[in-house]
Design a protein around this nucleic acid. Sequence first.
DNA 1: CCGGTGGCGCATGTATACATAAGATGGCCA
DNA 2: TGGCCATCTTATGTATACATGCGCCACCGG
Lengths: 243, 243
Amino acid sequence: MDAQTGTSTHAQRALITLRQRILSGQLPGGTRLFEVALAEELAISRTPIRAALSQLAEETLLERAKGGGFVVRSFKLADVVDTIDLRGVLEGTAARYAAERGADAALLERAHVVLRGIDAVVSDQSIDMDAYSALNSEFHLLLAHMSGSDILQREIARVTALPFASPSAFLDDHTRIDTLQKTLGAAQDQHRAIIDAIEHRESGRAESLAREHARAARRNVEYLLSHEAALREGVASLALLSN
Amino acid sequence: MDAQTGTSTHAQRALITLRQRILSGQLPGGTRLFEVALAEELAISRTPIRAALSQLAEETLLERAKGGGFVVRSFKLADVVDTIDLRGVLEGTAARYAAERGADAALLERAHVVLRGIDAVVSDQSIDMDAYSALNSEFHLLLAHMSGSDILQREIARVTALPFASPSAFLDDHTRIDTLQKTLGAAQDQHRAIIDAIEHRESGRAESLAREHARAARRNVEYLLSHEAALREGVASLALLSN
DNA sequence: CCGGTGGCGCATGTATACATAAGATGGCCA
DNA sequence: TGGCCATCTTATGTATACATGCGCCACCGG
């Protein structure tokens, strides 16, 4: 019905609208969301609004307030760093499991295909960031899958859902091409090393490498944040930060 | 209003009732929950039922079905083991952070008090399991708190919410006193070692110890499951398992 | 001037009627 | 006899009216 969003129900559209507003910082952390106000603004009834709010709470973007109601979750700078580190810990565990238990051959093969794809993108003169982002995301997805643990995979997906903890966060903020190429090249080296460790069943090495790989993303954030407004401006992934 | 459950709203009561049914295995994994049926049975309208179902989805006990509706999440045996291991990984990270960043003095002091309390309970002739359970839970809560990371603390709380991943799961299934006392004594040694490592800022040791501590719980589960029906019967924490 | 108390208003809780879409079912036709 | 289509059932989606409960503010009494 709704060609714009591709969804049919009011609740779905409200969910998408509100999520976008939270992620963009338009609804800052700590903001309380009132059902009636939202219902009037979106021109629908309270019922689909409540459904949307519930789902946003599942995504951890909202928290239930005491005595009912929802409040936009607020993220401090330390939370961003901790979440990225947490992703490193979880992906490290995934890599370790893959090495210990043995990764599925088809997944490993696909990983090599993805790695070659990233090579092609990075070596190109003008880097296609969308293509890189897609391939990078798939690599991290494959890594989680290789763990062979549904529980772990699910948990990684949860943490990764936060925009600043996504493997492909902070990719669109590199102004100079040479710096970007160097950064992506280093990340790619780590990708290769992780797969190599998994294939050689070196679980400790695999875990350490995956952790360190996330650490690079953390360094990137810390660099962005140390330069305050100048760089932080226009970094979409950080729009929902509190301070 | 409701003296039994101590809650006031219909949604709260429905939440408690349904959660109990899922955890007890009365509603097996894969069961689809129909709003109308539940509403009639609990003699309330669909609205509070939907509220309760949403909250159960937040607790990961329910999953949203394609095309709407909710299904009871099903846990395989491997999921139990993986979740306990995941707790170990997360608590290991908490212990490492505490060692690296330095734990709050008040929390450390409280931890020592708890450890002395556990000593008293364990050395007693007939062990007061409720007292042990409460102290053990508090110890693990303190550990998460010592990490100094809200993100990590929250994630540990999420994982720990599952009954079989709780630090105090599988405590009421020990028939012989001597075995129990030995088990709890070993766990207590690990508790002490973890705190010692944190106090001496030995982060690697702290992380390893916390992981191994969870591993003990995992061994306990694997033992229970290897003896099938005989032991598994009557272990409340495992009631919601699929097979 | 201060403290308590009453009421009022707002936000969520609840019930219910109606809309809609997807799946089950039965019959009909090839 | 098998497959397809219409229809009907059923479950969720949505709107709306009413209930409830809590907090705030003002007013009154000391």
